[in-house]
Structures are given as structure tokens and as C-alpha cells.
Nucleic acid binder design. Structure first.
Lengths: 191, 191
DNA sequence: ATGGAAGCGGAGCATCGCTCCGTATTCACT
DNA sequence: AGTGAATACGGAGCGATGCTCCGCTTCCAT
């Protein structure tokens, strides 16, 4: 994951590299405007690139989504341990961390839905989120369990998917507050 | 809702009536096999009917879904008041009722997702669930609030949508238990 | 029986995901 | 610089799907 840019075993052609950058920018812009389900043709048009080029660089839509949001997911993952070191209870740290996660998800039209769906093609998206965030979530959960603050029968994966699900369609409904419901879920964990 | 079959203001043709029945049966069968997102052509083929016939009887997919599940939704709605009369606390009644709702949703592939999406075409599905279930949910919530068991800042609509969202994609993942998470949500309501 | 109203069917158009391959571009080597 | 092979590009095209539209069929009141 870190030796991906440094080790140019066989140098990538200049036009290919340039197109990848252009594509990432175009995809990010289109995702904001039309959500992560936007037609591939739209992204290709925005990047002024053929569709073949998209599929060559990012074989599945999930790969493109991961590439666009990798930094933000990583930031969320890194925030977990940091919150645990602050002088607040583990349960409070969990609350704060869940807030960060919800903040991230609700602003990405369709991302939460794509995350949950293990439809073919979204596998790598699913995998990336799981790999990066489940360990962090479990670390915080374990700390809270050790402090006797929460029950023990809910795993990190399950909690994360629950929170993720609460964020689906959370952006086009004024009467629905994903933050509040996620807070309820976390509150329900208390012993 | 009840005078729909009795009052034949202008008698419907026999073949039309028969086709409607056949379609409902075919749709129910296909929904079980392929989920509520199954291609319209598949339902038409199963019913040995043209696609035009489907769209004539059920202008949107939502109308068909509502027609198929109306009885079960009604049964869930009617269970609410009944639970409140049993000699258990309002909060326990809420728990039981939420279980019924989750039971219903998780066995209908794709229904929870369709419910949340207010994509054009799903409006009437959304509306039917809201009309039937939100009042019931609020009735139980009010009883629990009156008993001082839960907080007051979560509305019936919001809770229902939260529960519904927890049920999305809940059927193809052994490590994800919508019941447990819904229970957490309800537990989190406690004062 | 019969004519017009009600209903039917499925061809057809549009959209979208994804593939495939002829063409264009880049780059290492001379 | 020239050159040829490796690499990358583009977009036509296929299949799947939602939905419409209209010529044809079926029903039923008379």
C-alpha cells in the first residue's frame, strides 16, 4: 500500500500517469455533483478520456472510489488511536470517532449504499473499508470493554456496518438525522 | 383501503381482473427468488403477460411492491396497538414491535433499500409505509415517553427509517445481525 | 350479433455497464 | 535522430433493463 508509487519496477508511461491524475480529479468532481453512482461515461467525458481508459486504470467502480477517498478513510482510521489517548473515556472516544465516520459518509452521495452492497464490483471498496476501519473500531471497543463501559457482544465489523447503514440515503431527508441515530446506537452499547 | 374491491363503480373486465391476480402471484414469487429489484420482464414472463400489462396495472414498481406486501404491512401496523395492551412495559412493547418490523424486512431482498431510496418511482412505496407504520410507531413511543422510559427527541419517522436502514443488505452477511443492532438502537432510547 | 370500449402485447427507444480491437503514443535502444 | 515494439488510448458495439406507444384483440352491453 505504501510501496505502490515508490517502486516503479517498470516505469509507467507518462500519458498513462497523467490520465490517472486527470481521472481522479474528474471522478472526485463528478462524485460530488452526482454521487458515486454517476455513469462511467460522465466521468470519462469530464476527464476528456475514453471509457476504455477508465476501465484500464480502475477495473471496477470500487477501485476508482477507493482511490478518490483513500486519504479521507486513512485520516479517519488514524483518528481512532489518537482519540483514545486524549483524556476522555473510551466510550466518549467511540462517540467522537463514530461522529467522524458519519461525517465522512453522509457527505458522499451513495457511498454508504455502495459500501453495504456486496454486489459484484464493489468487493474492493468493501474490503478497503473493512481493512482500514474495522481494526480501529475494535481497538476502541476493546478499550471501552476493558473499562467496563459497554457490552461485549457487538463486534467492530457489525457496529461499523450498522453505522454505515444508518448513513444510507441520509442526505436527502431533512427529518432524518444519521448523527442522532448513530449516537443512539452507541448509547445502546452501554452496560 | 377497504372499499377498493367492494365498490366496482364501473365493472372491471374479467380478463383484467384475472391478470391482476396472476401478476400479484407472479410478482410475489419472483420477489422471493430474485428480490424486489427483479427485472420487470422476468415478472411479466412468469405471469405469461406482456410488459404493457404490468405497467397498466401497476404504473410504478412501488405500486406492485405495495400490492404484494400490503397485508403484511397492515399486520405489522395492527400488532402495535395490540402489543401496548399486553401487560408489558411500553418499552418492551417497542422492542417486540421493532422485532416484528425487522423480521418482515430482512426476509424481503432489497425491500429495505427500496424503502429508503426516495428515487422517483418509489414514492408510493415510501408513502405507504410511512402512512401505515409511522403513526403506530409514534403511538408506542408516546406511551414509552409517558411512562418515562425513553428520551423524547427521536420521532417515529426517524426511528422507523433508522431501523429500516439497519435491515439493508442484512440478508447476505452472516456476521451482521440486524436484530441485534435494532435492539441496540431501541436500548439507546432509554433515559 | 355486433360495435365500441377496455385491455393486451411486445417492438422499440433510451440509458448504462463493460469489452474488444484497430490506431496512436511513448520510450529504450541504436 | 530514427525506429520498432510495448504500452496506452478511444469509442463502437453488445447485452441488460426501464418504460412507452400504438396496432390488434377481447369482452360485454345492447
Amino acid at each position: 500500500m505504501t510501496d505502490r508509487d515508490e517502486r516503479p519496477a517498470r516505469a509507467k508511461r507518462a500519458d498513462a500517469k497523467r490520465n490517472e491524475t486527470v481521472l481522479l480529479e474528474a471522478a472526485a468532481a463528478v462524485f460530488v455533483e452526482s454521487g458515486v453512482d454517476a455513469p462511467v461515461r460522465e466521468i470519462a467525458a469530464r476527464a476528456q478520456v475514453g471509457m476504455g481508459t477508465i476501465y484500464r486504470h480502475f477495473p471496477t467502480r470500487a477501485d476508482l472510489i477507493v482511490a478518490v477517498y483513500r486519504h479521507q478513510v486513512d485520516a479517519c482510521a488514524e483518528a481512532g488511536p489518537r482519540l483514545l489517548t486524549e483524556r476522555i473515556s473510551p466510550h466518549a472516544a467511540l462517540s467522537r470517532w463514530v461522529e467522524l465516520f458519519v461525517d465522512f459518509l453522509v457527505t458522499k452521495h451513495g457511498l454508504a449504499a455502495a459500501l453495504g452492497s456486496d454486489q459484484a464490483g464493489f468487493a474492493s471498496l468493501h474490503a478497503y473499508f473493512i481493512d482500514r476501519l474495522v481494526p480501529v473500531c475494535e481497538q476502541i471497543l476493546d478499550a471501552a470493554i476493558a473499562a467496563g463501559e459497554i457490552r461485549k457482544d457487538v463486534g467492530g465489523y457489525e457496529l461499523l456496518r450498522g453505522i454505515g447503514n444508518l448513513c444510507i440515503f441520509a442526505d436527502d431527508d431533512a427529518d432524518y438525522d444519521a448523527h442522532r441515530l448513530a449516537g443512539l446506537l452507541v448509547a445502546g452499547l452501554r452496560t
